[in-house]
Design a protein around this nucleic acid. Structure first.
Lengths: 151, 151
DNA sequence: TTGATTTAGTGGCATATACCACTATCAACG
DNA sequence: CGTTGATAGTGGTATATGCCACTAAATCAA
């Protein structure tokens, strides 16, 4: 590997994505801080809220998140009494998730802050550009890179 | 919060970024797996490589990463002998970082896999679209959302 | 019905990443 | 000089996230 004229990391789609996520994550986290929730937690509460007592697997799919990762992420929210789980009566393998009343109040509070963060983001980036970015991100989230099975 | 006609999480810039990052991160990680490195580690080794024995603070700035987070991320790479650190002789507060010979070999190996992942990504997404996405991500990484100081 | 297979989650372990309090330096100034 | 303030990292703690091995439950097949 020569060190001359090496391209920066700005060529790596993954690196750029992670870097932007750190940046924006810090920003949303800052704005949400007064609620005591991280942006990831607010997003998770919201996802649970808009679902119909979603199963853990359904949430994980929607968020493209590992099921066990979701389980771990859920723990502090359960511990703090924002979320509760219960077994699906028709299939006891399935564990469903819902907000507690306390969780609903907290989500309300966090959503107000989220709107502030979101609005300022749109103001700075531009509404159109932000929408295009989200669309592009949605696209790549839906892609199928399936590695040709090592056959 | 009414549950009727709620917009999906697809409106949140942060949530979409995180979701796409999880997706693409898993993809790059999969392709890099044979090297034993995660995509984050490959990116970090590369960043160190293209720098001139960069200081930790310089790396953290370039990656928009918390300095202490960088320190933690570096630990497994040091433990595995890919990276070493040394105090700057002119300012002993500064700790510089460089690849070991072993680290350079490992980076070489990982970069070959990275190219595979990157190429396939570009094939699937489209070269132009990928470039536009990276440019947009670079833009937002450079923004200044500074919260109007609570005055 | 029973044994094999698939599905849904859990728990352990490891990395990724952030914030905070603290230490070690260095730099500025009186 | 010596105090004071800014700068660079460290360590602790907590969340974010993924993989793997394992268990429980449902499903399919013989």
């Amino acid at each position: 590997m020569s060190k001359e004229a090496v391209p920066g990391l700005s060529l790596c789609n993954n690196a750029m994505l992670r870097r932007a996520t750190r940046k924006i994550g810090q920003y949303y986290d800052d704005v949400l801080a007064p609620s005591g929730l991280k942006a990831t937690q607010q997003g998770l509460l919201y996802q649970i809220h808009i679902g119909n007592e979603p199963a853990m697997g359904a949430i994980a799919s929607a968020l493209i998140m590992d099921l066990s990762a979701l389980g771990h992420t859920l723990k502090p929210l359960i511990r703090d009494g924002y979320v509760e789980t219960f077994a699906d009566p028709d299939d006891r393998r399935i564990k469903r998730v819902r907000l507690t009343p306390r969780g609903l109040v907290k989500l309300d509070e966090a959503m107000k802050l989220w709107q502030v963060a979101q609005q300022r983001f749109e103001d700075v980036v531009g509404k159109e550009k932000a929408a295009r970015l989200r669309a592009a991100l949605d696209d790549i989230s839906a892609l199928d890179f399936d590695l040709p099975p090592a056959n």
